[in-house]
Amino acid sequence: MKDIAAEMYAMLNETKIAFTVPIFGGIPIPSSVAVTWGIMAVIVLFCIIFVRGFKLMPGRMQTAIEMFVGWIYDFFTGILGEKGRKYIPYLGTVLIYIGCANIVGLFGLIPPTKDLNVTAGLAIMSIVLVEAAGIRSKGTRGWLRSFKKPMAVMVPFNILEIVIKPLSLCMRLFGNVLGAFVIMELIKAVVPAIVPLPFSFYFDIFDGLLQAYVFVFLTSLYISEAMDED
């Protein structure tokens, strides 16, 4: 038991360095960043290959991509309304990225979302986007005034919410991935073959995609709340 704990501790507590870029005296690249680059390269290459040849009369691949993008637009437009259309590409990017990042565990890579830095970064960007949307929609004065709603007593809580929202987003994603990882490690320690497979499908595919969905869903909900003029 002790060695599993020690192993896990070692896996979780150190920042794995994939390689070091030999400029400025060596910039270490964490493995999560390296995997992220791989995911980015795959996604962008996929887009370039399949989207470049788009025609008015769609083929099968084009129909699938169009349906996917159309679904993203419909989904976010349903939450944000017409005026939130400009935020949809970012939310779609995050959805695709988190989805791919969670699935990547299937291919034997370490999901980047298991790095707290990645989920925290995503959450911080989300809260920046939410507040920016609030400022853009209401103006700085209206945005500041929105802190004392519904009454002035709520000001500290509303300010606290700026911290709580991204913390909750970050911890939900990270906790899910970490929990999945720990449970998978424990299962693998007990039964190394076959049994982990369905669990792997559940945690990597279902839970991973669900968490990506929930992450962008909550972000868009916060944005729509921030844009709401009441």
């Binding site: 909750s168 911890m171 939900r172 990270f174 906790g175 899910n176 970490l178 929990g179």
Partner: peptide, 10 residues
């Protein structure tokens, strides 16, 4: 709701 369980787990 699940988030609370996740917090506890973390």
């Amino acid at each position: 709701a699940e988030a609370t369980a996740i917090y506890g787990f973390v």
